[in-house]
């Protein structure tokens, strides 16, 4: 449904997006994850035909956004970072205007506007001027505007920014409902948001795609890391030999410790959780287990660099004992 090939966008000499490629299948929700300034908005602006790419190609709903912009735009709904509202218009007037320029036929306009307001829960503000709406309502009127003409593709730039927690949940729910009939790209810099709404994630940093995967895989790679840091109160040489004998462990290196106890980095076979065995072995050997935690892999380092952590909704079995 959406195909991006070797897309590059430069502003003068600065390149905002550098050779990125990805695909989104029909009905899928793709999360676009990255810190501010990573190139999310630029990519979205190219996809919506707001600006042409410097090189590369983007195809939306079967139409090249640069070669056949009108056809592509007809099938795209876009919520920019700041909802594009005209402060002097009422919500209804505004949506009617949008319906007109999006090419919704005259007879359907009213029902489409009503339906969009109903879906995004802004109907109670229909006669209010857009300039007088709260941030949450603006965002939702922006969303109503994007899905008004029932486009195949929805491109949402931080759709939950500025909403309160209840509205965030509602909006995520709405986005999930929209998937299937619509193909959705949404950008965010909040990790759990991606995990909850998206089927696939593109992580982008400094204009480059760092990873493309499902949120499950990403989460596994993040939390189930394959190197453990263990701090044990005991003679380093003995501890090292014993730890090496734990099933699944491939390598043990002595690392920096503190409080008079040595630390060890224990590497294990991929996909194997050795934490329980490690703990049992150390305690069984009569030593004190002071610390046991996964060492963050480079992907997580990237992630940390990339994302603003939101409090995770549910504890995910963190093995950090401090």
């Amino acid at each position: 449904m959406i195909e991006v090939q070797h897309l590059t966008k430069r502003y003068g000499r600065v390149s905002a997006v550098e050779d990125i490629s990805f695909r989104v299948e029909r009905g899928e929700i793709l999360g676009f994850l990255g810190p501010n300034g990573a190139g999310k908005t630029t990519t979205m602006r190219v996809l919506t035909g707001y600006m042409p790419p410097t090189s590369g190609k983007a195809v939306v709903a079967g139409f090249d956004v640069f070669e056949q912009p009108l056809e592509a735009k007809r099938r795209t709904g876009y919520l920019p970072e700041t909802p594009p509202l005209y402060p002097e218009m009422t919500v209804r007037e505004y949506l009617t205007f949008v319906a007109r320029i999006k090419g919704v036929p005259g007879g359907e306009r009213k029902s489409r506007v009503d339906a969009a307001m109903e879906r995004t829960r802004v109907a109670d503000m229909a006669e209010r001027h857009c300039g007088k709406l709260s941030k949450g309502y603006r965002q939702r009127v922006g969303l109503a505007q994007a899905l008004l003409h029932n486009p195949d593709v929805l491109i949402l730039d931080e759709p939950t920014a500025g909403l309160d927690p209840k509205q965030i949940i509602e909006t995520r729910q709405l986005i999930k409902e929209l998937a299937g009939t619509h193909t959705i790209i949404l950008s965010t810099h909040i990790l759990p948001e991606v995990a909850q709404t998206c089927q696939r994630v593109v992580i982008i940093n400094r204009g480059k795609v760092v990873a493309v995967d499902t949120p499950e895989n990403l989460t596994r790679r993040l939390t189930g890391s394959e190197t453990m840091y263990v701090q044990v109160d005991g003679a380093p040489a003995d501890v090292k030999t014993v730890l090496e004998k734990v099933p699944g462990v491939t390598r043990v290196t002595v690392a920096e410790g503190h409080d008079g106890a040595a630390g060890y980095e224990v590497e294990s076979e991929p996909g194997r959780d050795v934490r329980r065995d490690l703990a049992r072995t150390v305690v069984g050997g009569g030593w004190g287990l002071l610390e046991l935690r996964p060492v963050r892999l480079s992907l997580e380092d990237i992630f940390l660099q990339l994302t603003t952590e939101e409090q995770p909704q549910a504890p995910q079995g963190e093995a950090t004992i401090q």
Binding site: R45, T48, G49, Y50, L70, E71, K73, R74, T76, Y78, P80, E81, T82, P84, L85, Y86, P87, V98, I101, K102, G103, Q145
Partner: peptide
């Protein structure tokens, strides 16, 4: 300034 130009330029109008 207000960003509404993004609406116009991403709508199917020339």
């Amino acid at each position: 300034r207000s960003g509404t130009i993004e609406l116009l330029m991403t709508s199917p109008v020339t």
